[in-house]
Design a protein around this nucleic acid. Structure first.
Lengths: 239, 239
DNA sequence: AGCCACACGTGACAC
DNA sequence: TGTGTCACGTGTGGC
């Protein structure tokens, strides 16, 4: 039977569907001739031949689909029909996971961005102060080139009655005020009154803040370190 | 032939693989009996029966895979084998597109976040003010619960010499000051001097700011809308 | 009736 | 050597 010989080239017929009729030793005409004209009974075998060609087309279509499936799935190990489907399943599951991951990341980014347009103050600030790597990771590349605050002077004085006076001088750059406000808020300081003045690229700040219950020494160091963390390393700082 | 009768329940055998041996009128023993014991020659037909059962297992495995594929693909229209594969292909392509979309969005968010800790000032602010949907989309759920600024009063007055006086009253909540500072910085306003006073949960701010070159009317509206965007919808606002 | 989709058994081929 | 995979033709059931 030539029909059995024909499928030596499995996927070639699918790879080059235009050539398949030419490459195949039998085509529809030959088949109908084989099944219709040579058979003793004309009518009954005609139905059988129709069924044959129909079934053949069905198989062909299914193989085409299978090959198309194989085309959209990367990293297919084996050309097995079963393996193709298996890899496709795993790939879809992989895509599902990745989609979830990406959506979670987007949600994280969006909420982090909006909840606090900067970063997660109370959350990130301790990390920010503790881990230098994390800080560099956040403040990298585009952020670093124009954002670091050049701290010129910083004074933190205890005035009694749980009240401090913070007075600092720094260069005015992008986000300078934002970052300073962040630091104060992250320390949960009650700002009684604040005065900010800027002239010729310099920013002067004087704040009266009230602590909750922490002792003064601890808070004083906290404020200094928090603000210093925003500073570029080399700039001078005095108590 | 019972073998042919058995597949009346196409996928049921796959749907309930535990029951298939019970539900099937024939099992392996019956088959081997049919093909082995009843055949005149024992040895040759044994190989044939092995081939038969092997082929049967292969088909079964392939169908199981196909059904598993159908399980991970939503919205399958037809139960056709070909249709299942077709839907799977389309679904994978859909996932591909979505993955690209999500990655692009993440890239967008990340760059926007790093480039400017607030939003993309000139870039995002117009969008933020223009599209209400996008704003609601951004300011959803976790963001809204504790962050919105309750704006009580807002005044923006032009003082001449490219100088404005912005005076506002709002409730003091988390990040209130940070967000306000962000708005001012995002508008690239030069802050000449600012005074902030907080008492009994209320925040009073008075700023003298200097514009670059924009005409006063535009800037005035910009400031108002930008600050109002941080507000909760129902709070009163006066010019 | 015709049509469509299926599982089956079988021979051929490859490793 | 067999073991695995394939396409084929065929019979059958559902619409």
């Amino acid at each position: 039977m030539e029909n059995i010989e024909e499928d030596k080239h499995f996927w070639e017929n699918i790879l080059f569907p235009n050539q398949e009729l030419n490459s195949w030793p039998v085509d529809e005409a030959a088949l109908s001739g084989y099944y219709d004209s040579s058979s003793p009974d004309g009518g009954a075998s005609s139905a059988a031949s129709k069924n044959i060609v129909s079934e053949r087309n069905r198989r062909k279509k299914l193989n085409e689909r299978l090959f198309a499936l194989r085309a959209v799935v990367p990293n297919i190990s084996k050309m097995d029909k079963a393996s193709i489907i298996k890899d496709a399943i795993e790939y879809i599951q992989h895509l599902h996971e990745q989609e979830k991951r990406l959506q979670a990341e987007i949600l994280d980014l969006e909420s982090g961005k909006l909840k606090n347009p900067t970063y997660e103050l109370e959350h990130d600030l301790p990390i920010l102060l503790r881990s230098k790597k994390r800080r560099e990771q956040l403040f990298d590349s585009a952020t670093l080139k124009n954002s670091p605050i050049e701290l010129i002077e910083l004074r933190v004085a205890y005035m009694g009655e749980k009240t401090f006076v913070v007075s600092l001088t720094c260069s005015k750059r992008t986000d300078t005020m934002v970052k300073l406000c962040e630091v104060f808020e992250s320390l949960k300081l009650k700002i009684i009154t604040a005065n900010i003045t800027s002239f010729s690229g310099t920013l002067l700040k004087t704040l009266f803040i009230q602590a909750d219950e922490t002792e003064k020494d601890v808070l004083q160091i906290k404020i200094q370190t928090a603000i210093s963390a925003l500073n570029v390393p080399q700039s001078p700082m005095s108590i």
